[in-house]
Each structure stands twice: as structure tokens, then as C-alpha cells.
Design a protein around this nucleic acid. Structure first.
Length: 428
RNA sequence: GGAGGGGUGGCCGAGCGGUCGAAGGCGCACGCCUGGAAAGUGUGUAUACGGGAAACCGUAUCGCGGGUUCGAAUCCCGCCCCCUCCGCCA
């Protein structure tokens, strides 16, 4: 959620920033709508509060009069209060209505892109750097769906029987490889990068989902249990962000660096057709997620650190990748700046998005009411929240198979991963 | 799922219809005392929103939502969460 006060005091600045991710007239119209409704709200609120103040002081005087035994005078004041209160329900209703209107109009405005974020849509994404040299094959490299099927790592044929298409059924060494990758990533972030591990519920209630703004982004994308109104995690990010919801943190403890493994569920309704083969786009996948709670001044520095924490995974696995900075129009709703990491998959001949590292500034923290005190007695300030995948498993699994395949269809296991597979150097 | 008990400020804990944003204590901050410290002592110490240049003022908040009342932390109803016991269960 954006700061309503910024919209009040600097609407042009807000419109200019939003225009990087949507047509300017559209941005202008949305901002003006918020301002207009907000003005009405404040007027209504003021009027209502003045009358409430009058009622409060009258009620106090009634108490005093009663104690002094002046019951008839007290009765007169009571009558006056009753008159004021008769019209109070309408005023309250109006104020509530306007407040809800402001919240919902404000709620659809996405975060303001950072200065360094390019304007425009996907076509303006920038490749920041590439790392690793794609291996030159002296044979046509196979796609991971063929490799995985041939090596009996994934049972693509039987999987749909269990929960429909888009679900993976890992088998034998395939399941173990998945587990090993999760372990490697967690250990790396915990031991080398200083993150604290959490194991969270895999479902969240509506309050939590709403607080981190995922309800806007994900509602139709999320699996939802109607009986208890619980949502399956689309990512562990909202779980990690809600840990400190409605809290005022001690500034000395920042930044908080959290990491969690979780399965992620996404309905991806209507996405059928593109990138659906193999592991490219599935309804349930494993992910190791990083979240940082930071001081506002250090959030962009922390974003760079988080990005390198994520690329360390690919470096360890010897998978070539490139870093793409997203243009404003391609940013997720809460992000001000975002880097995608794309792993190269020589078999599928594609760049696969395996991580997305975003600085959401104070956008999520505002709705979730996550603040910190710089020092004792200082006014609470909103923290900045960052999230990044470190990394998403299926596409890393795919890139691993495709990059390290041999002519005979076997797969070399990168050295760093071998300890997690009992020293295994090769599959097949 | 059933029965009972409970949710008050950073923490502990009083309050059970008016003077209560809330006693007292702990913690914390600043001052006094001290050669320095401890002890002692004094003062201060919630959050959000609105108004105001500011001082400050107003409104709301005692788990959440509603109700009764001129007035609710206090009474009533619903929900959520925690604890104890019972049942079921990996």
C-alpha cells in the first residue's frame, strides 16, 4: 500500500513514478480518485469527531452533575447528547464507506518503481550481466523431460492420475536429488550467508495473505480451502513477512535475514499452452525463499546482497545464468526494483527464471504494520521488506540435468552437491 | 469435538459502570546523589488517524466485532486465540 500522505502532498511525484509502469492518464486518474475520496473522508471524519468530542465532554459533565445531586440539570444535558447521537449512525456509516473507498482505491495502486527501474514493459528489461559459459556440446543436448524420464527420475506418465496435469511425481534418485538441492540451498544461506531458517505453516489465513498484498496479486492463482478459509502458500514469502506483522522491532536487530523452504502452489489458471512441458510450469513446486527486513537506508544495498546470495546457488551448481533487471511494467505489484535470475537450459534452448529478487520498500510493511524504532524513544518507522528466491527448484533441477548431461544420457553431479547425495558423482 | 479458566501498556499486574490511556512494580531514558559505580532518589516513558508552523488539541484503541447506557477495560451477545481436563488421532 502506498502512503496516503505522499499522495496528498506530492500527487505529481506519485503520478510520474506510476507512469513508468502504466499509461500516464491512467495513473493520473487513479491518483486523483484517491485524493478526491480522501478529502471527502477527512471532512466527514472531522465533523464526526467534533460531535463525538462534544458528546464525550457532555457525558463527563453528567457524571459530575449526578455526584453533586443536580439530577435535573443532568437530564437536560442527556437530552442534548441524545439529539446529537441520533444522527451519529449516518455520519459513522458515511465515514466508514468513504474509508473503505479510500482503502480500496489506494489498494489497487502498485508500488512506485525505484529511480533505477527502467520505464515501460517487458521489452525494456535490461540484461545486467551474464555468468558462466554455456557448455559446447558435441551432440544435440536433450531436454530435461527426456533426460528425467530416461533416467527414471520423474514419472511424467503417472503423475496426472494423482492430481491432474501440472504436478510432478519424483521417483527414486529424482526425489533424492530434489531433496539434496533443497538441503544445499538451505545450508548455503544459513551457514555462508547468515540467514535464519524458519519452517512455516504451508497454509495462511486471509489476514496474513491480505497483509502482504498477495490477495491482490494471487487470489485466482491460489489454492484455497473454503472450509477454513485458508490459502496454500503461493510462495513462502507471505509466511515469512507475516511473522512480524503488527510489531515494532528493535532497530538494532535489523536487518533480519530469513530463509525458508516450502512447497509453493499456484493454480496458474489459463496458462496452459506455453512452457508447460516437463518442469517449466507446474502447480506445485519446491522453493527456498529469502526475506529481509531492513532499515530504509540500506534496502537497496541488501537487495544486491540478496541477489548475490541467490546467484551463489547457481555458481555452486555450475549452471550458466544471466541477471535481468525488470522494467517497471514487468514488476510485481509490491516491488520497486527487481532482478530476475535466468538459468540457461541448453536442451530446452531457453532461459529459465529461477529466482526473482525484489525490494518492496515500505509497501508491504505499511499494510502489515511492520515497524522498527531506530533507538529508544524514537518514533517507529516502517521497515523495508525484500524477498528473493534462493532458488526455485524445478527449473534448477531442469537446468542441472540439461547442462551436465553427457552423450550417453548420464548426468554429472556438481561437486558441491555430491555430499548431499552420498558422494554420488554421476546419475545413469 | 465437549467441559472449565483466561486474554489489560515493552514485560508483570491492579481495576469490574463516570474523575481510566488506564494504579503499582519491573525494564528503559534523562537528572540528582557518588571520586566512579551500585544502592537510593526525582522526572519521563503506548500506537494510529485528523487538525496545527509549533506548543499542543481532538478522535480511536484494555484479543476482535456487535449491543446496552448520557457514559464501558468494567455489563450482554458472537467470534478468535491461549491454558487445564476429557474425547479422537500421526
Amino acid at each position: 500500500m502506498l502512503d496516503i500522505r505522499l499522495i496528498r502532498t506530492s500527487p505529481d511525484q506519485v503520478v510520474a513514478a506510476l507512469s513508468k509502469r502504466m499509461p500516464e492518464d491512467q495513473a493520473r486518474a487513479k491518483v486523483d480518485e484517491v485524493r478526491h475520496t480522501d478529502e471527502l473522508l477527512r471532512k466527514a471524519l472531522q465533523e464526526s469527531e467534533e460531535l463525538k468530542a462534544e458528546v464525550n465532554s457532555a457525558s463527563k459533565s453528567i457524571g459530575l452533575l449526578m455526584r453533586e445531586g443536580k439530577a435535573d440539570e443532568a437530564a437536560k444535558v442527556k437530552d442534548r447528547v441524545r439529539v446529537i447521537k441520533e444522527s451519529q449512525p449516518q455520519r459513522d456509516a458515511l465515514a466508514r464507506e468513504l474509508d473503505e473507498a479510500v482503502q480500496s482505491k489506494l489498494g489497487v495502486l502498485p508500488n512506485l518503481p525505484d529511480e533505477s527501474t527502467p520505464a515501460g514493459g517487458e521489452e525494456n528489461n535490461v540484461i545486467v550481466r551474464s555468468a558462466g559459459t554455456p557448455k559446447q556440446f558435441d551432440f544435440p543436448p536433450k531436454a530435461h523431460w527426456d533426460l528425467a524420464a530416461d533416467l527414471d527420475l520423474i514419472d511424467f506418465a503417472r503423475a496426472p492420475k494423482l492430481a491432474g496435469s501440472g504436478f510432478i511425481l519424483y521417483k527414486g534418485l529424482g526425489a533424492k536429488l530434489e531433496r539434496a538441492l533443497i538441503q544445499l540451498m538451505l545450508d548455503l544461506h544459513i551457514d555462508k550467508h547468515g540467514y535464519t531458517e524458519w519452517q512455516t505453516p504451508f497454509v495462511l489465513n486471509r489476514e496474513s495473505i491480505t497483509a502482504s498484498a498477495h490477495i491482490v496479486k494471487f487470489t485466482p492463482e491460489m489454492y484455497h480451502d473454503a472450509a477454513d478459509d485458508l490459502f496454500l502458500l503461493p510462495t513462502a514469502e507471505p509466511a515469512l513477512v507475516n511473522i512480524h506483522r503488527d510489531e515494532i522491532l528493535d532497530g538494532d536487530t535489523l536487518p533480519l535475514n530469513y530463509v525458508a523452504y516450502s512447497p509453493c502452489w499456484r493454480r496458474e489458471a489459463g496458462a496452459a499452452g506455453k512452457d508447460t512441458r516437463g518442469l517449466l510450469r507446474v502447480h506445485q513446486f519446491d522453493k527456498v525463499e529469502m526475506v529481509k527486513y531492513t532499515h530504509p537506508e540500506t534496502s537497496y544495498y541488501e537487495l544486491e546482497k540478496m541477489l548475490s546470495n541467490a546467484t551463489d546457488v547457481l555458481d555452486l551448481l555450475n549452471i550458466p545464468y544471466r541477471i535481468v533487471q525488470l522494467a517497471a511494467g514487468d514488476l510485481s505489484f509490491s516491488a520497486a526494483k527487481c532482478y530476475d535470475i535466468e538459468a540457461f537450459a541448453p536442451g530446452a534452448k531457453a532461459w529459465l527464471e529461477v529466482s526473482s529478487c525484489s525490494n518492496c520498500t515500505d509497501f508491504q510493511a505499511r499494510r502489515a504494520a511492520i515497524r522498527f524504532r531506530a533507538k529508544q524513544g524514537a518514533k517507529p518507522e516502517l521497515v523495508h521488506l525484500l524477498n528473493g528466491s534462493g532458488t526455485a527448484l524445478p527449473r534448477v533441477f531442469a537446468a542441472l540435468l540439461e547442462n551436465h548431461q553427457n552423450a550417453d544420457g548420464s548426468i554429472n553431479i556438481p561437486e558441491a552437491l555430491q555430499p548431499y547425495l552420498g558422494g554420488l558423482k554421476k546419475i545413469g
